[in-house]
């Protein structure tokens, strides 16, 4: 295994860079600084409600086709370790 060069090379773009970022002084450092509303008109509410229900029925049918079987088992076995 090769060690990374202890002295990082000077480079044209980022300039001289210090290995120990916590200690080295840095020079320079000028700080460089829909609103579409829901639903149709009042008179259309009933029709809209019917349409929404149909959409939902259709969506649930599609979910039935893809929902994992043995939900109880699946959910019970879904255990993760805490992360971050």
């Amino acid at each position: 295994m090769r060690a990374i060069n202890a002295d990082p090379a000077m480079n044209r773009i980022w300039g001289a860079a210090a290995e120990d970022k916590t200690q080295k002084q840095r020079q320079g450092g000028g700080d460089s600084g829909d609103s579409d509303s829901e639903g149709g008109g009042q008179s259309k509410i009933a029709a809209k409600g019917e349409e929404l229900k149909e959409d939902m029925d259709n969506l649930i049918d599609q979910i039935d086709d893809v929902l994992e079987e043995n939900a109880e088992e699946f959910v019970k076995n879904y255990v993760q370790r805490g992360g971050e």
């Binding site: 090769r2 060069n5 990082p8 980022w14």
Partner: peptide, 23 residues
Amino acid sequence: DSISFEAGDEPVKRILMNEPLKG
């Protein structure tokens, strides 16, 4: 904030990129 290159038998060269809006 860095990228290290190995080129031939030369020691690995680390290019530091401490300014996120460069490069």
